[in-house]
Design a protein around this nucleic acid. Structure first.
Lengths: 214, 214
DNA sequence: GGTCTCGTACGTACACCGTACGTTGTAGTG
DNA sequence: CACTACAACGTACGGTGTACGTACGAGACC
């Protein structure tokens, strides 16, 4: 007998997390269970628990893996530009992993996210903002990035297939145009798709307002 | 035998939702199960399904119940003031029901939330903003309200008891002050609690920036 | 060689979950 | 009285996270 070689890779924290991220990218975190994850890796459920203390830890590690994808700002760039770049890069990571925004807030920051915080806070401290405004700015920027992405993806969540337009039309059909005229036109604006780069627009608006604060 | 009177109230959609909201206020939506909900109402699980099609519907109705608590703006107030008042009132409702912000985005708007949308959109349309800026403003304001509340309550979620400070201290102990000086001081600013009214501050900043847009 | 330790993988088992489905009891109508 | 309609119930199924006990293979010592 040649060898009992199996093509499964040895199990460790990293392999588990990488596979979990891939799984969630494809099928979402709702569908992610420890059993399915183990099956994908070619192991049985309980083997995972030799490397990971709970499902909650897996989720926390997943979020940190996403955070680790966010590049550090170039140290030579102007502080405000660095803040902007960080916000855009963070959003990009959250878009790449649509499940991450919803988990982001429910986990204590891990090492990669602490790094990310440090980068943003350092960039803000290097601007002209007063310390208290910089503190405010950290939350304002984070809010915008996470909230905006969350809101955008909420529609995808409600319409898990590609049928977002279909859901929007069904929604429109359910409300009366005479009682809710503004709502109807708002949804129609979405269907016309003229809402592309508003993320960066509002981001700049917020940054601008913050620098103006004092 | 006098009567088979039981002090339980008759079961209907409304009774279920009211109890579910109360339950979630006390113990969170994670702990909410159909069985526990039925037990609280004095019924068995499956009786709920005579009035409600699924747990998902219960959650959707709960969110709409929260939306229905948000008062309509006084029609005489200046449009921008109405927008501000709506944002503040929405936040108040979400603070009253800490589970609601997390659910808000995952549900198709029900009747009460459509009303709420209509109020906000109407107030925005009555300002000097151009239609496309008003569209933007709707999302920017919603983002801020929901994102900010979510972020704030995330800390409470991570520290489900009253021990938020304890968690913050543990978090601080886990990161190195020399590698992450800004993060340390940021968390310390939170522990000193000088971050009270920043919600309205950033809200005004956003509204100000929007009116400035054109 | 033998034996001992230790870590990883595995299988079983438990308490819970949402809910499909079939049965029961009761109130209302002819 | 018979018949209908429907709310309440009980049972059951397939899924979940994970505690716990067992099996086995690799290395460390004698």
């Amino acid at each position: 007998m040649v060898s009992e070689s199996t093509e499964r890779e040895p199990l460790d924290r990293n392999a588990i997390v990488v596979r979990a991220v891939g799984f969630a990218d494809e099928r979402g975190t709702d569908a992610l269970s420890m059993r399915k994850l183990a099956a994908e890796l070619g192991y049985e459920v309980m083997s995972l628990y030799n490397h990971v203390v709970s499902k909650g830890e897996v989720l926390a590690l997943m979020v940190d893996a996403v955070a680790s994808e966010i590049p550090a700002p170039n140290p030579d760039t102007e502080p405000l530009v660095a803040v902007r770049a960080l916000a855009v890069a963070t959003r990009a990571a959250l878009v790449r992993h649509p499940w991450a925004a919803g988990l982001w807030l429910r986990q204590l920051p891990g090492p990669a996210r602490v790094q990310h915080m440090e980068h943003l806070l350092a960039a803000l401290a290097a601007t002209d903002m007063s310390p208290s405004v910089a503190h405010l700015a950290f939350h304002a920027v984070n809010n915008h990035v996470i909230g905006y992405t969350l809101q955008e993806q909420a529609m995808a969540y409600v319409a898990p297939d590609g049928n977002a337009d279909e859901v929007a039309h069904a929604f429109l059909a359910g409300i009366s145009a005479e009682n809710h005229p503004h709502t109807v036109t708002h949804v129609q604006q979405h269907l016309d798709g003229d809402t592309a780069s508003s993320f960066e627009l509002v981001l700049d608006l917020i940054l601008d307002g913050l620098t103006r604060l004092d």
